[in-house]
């Protein structure tokens, strides 16, 4: 579904990503793990077009999306749930979700999706009329996920969904993401610092270090690797 081929990104002379190759097949949950500053968010931003790619290609369902304008990528079926949530603070929860559904023309489908979102996160239904800026961090993360889901995406990209959240809240978020994958069959690309949780549910994973992919494989392969175990899993 998504294929990143030899992608390189540089910011003002500094190489942030070099020669990244990565693939997400339909129905998979793929995790990208790695330390701070490894280039995980840059990878997502390059896919979404906020950061300009230097070389390489990104194909989504056979189409080279680097040739399309950034806002069109949501219309193509990619939902990017950004790091730090980025909800619209002075808009209500309902309005945030409507913005999530901006790329979705079908009104009936939208109502269906809103119901699904409120079933996953009942708190959002309760807070429908409230300004998103007044929500707690965990609620904002739920809203950001709901907002991503509202466009009926083919692929959802989650950037550090647990960042800044209390462990119990982060666990809920991970559960919901796993639920989306299992119950809704959602294709997911997940970037996360909490490696154990990120790998637990994934079909395959990539380890990103200083802008390069140093390892990839299934959960079993990665978690049996001594380096990964020592560096990331604390085993």
């Amino acid at each position: 579904m998504l294929k990143v081929d030899h992608l390189s990104v540089a910011y003002g002379g500094l190489t942030a990503l070099s020669d990244i190759c990565l693939e997400v097949r339909a129905g998979e949950l793929v995790s990208v793990v790695g330390p701070n500053g490894a280039g995980k968010s840059t990878l997502f931003k390059a896919i979404s077009g906020v950061v300009r790619a230097g070389s390489g290609s990104v194909t989504f369902e056979g189409e080279d999306i680097l040739q399309t304008r950034p806002f069109q990528r949501a219309h193509a079926g990619i939902a990017h749930v950004p790091e730090g949530r980025h909800v619209f603070p002075a808009m209500s929860v309902q309005e945030n979700l409507e913005m999530g559904a901006y790329a979705l023309a079908d009104a009936r489908k939208r109502e269906e999706l809103f119901e699904r979102i409120f079933a996953l996160f009942p708190i959002l239904a309760e807070r429908r009329r409230q300004y998103a800026g007044t929500l707690s961090g965990g609620e904002q993360q739920m809203l950001a996920i709901g907002r991503g889901l509202a466009s009926a995406p083919k692929l959802m990209m989650f950037d550090e969904p647990s960042m800044g959240l209390a462990p119990a809240v982060a666990d809920t978020i991970f559960e919901r993401i796993a639920q989306l994958h299992k119950e809704d069959g959602m294709t997911i690309l997940l970037v996360e610092q909490r490696v154990a949780e990120a790998m637990e549910n994934c079909d395959r994973g990539y380890v990103l270090q200083t802008g390069r992919i140093v390892m990839s494989g299934t959960y079993e392969e990665l978690s049996s690797d001594d380096n990964v175990r020592r560096a990331y899993l604390g085993m």
Partner: peptide, 24 residues
């Protein structure tokens, strides 16, 4: 209106608005 809301979204957080598919 959808247009008015998208203007507000684009103003409040251009990056997130882009992820929503709004031509910021």
């Amino acid at each position: 209106t959808r247009m008015g809301k998208s203007l507000r979204a684009a103003a409040e957080d251009p990056e997130a608005a882009l992820y929503m598919g709004i031509d910021v």
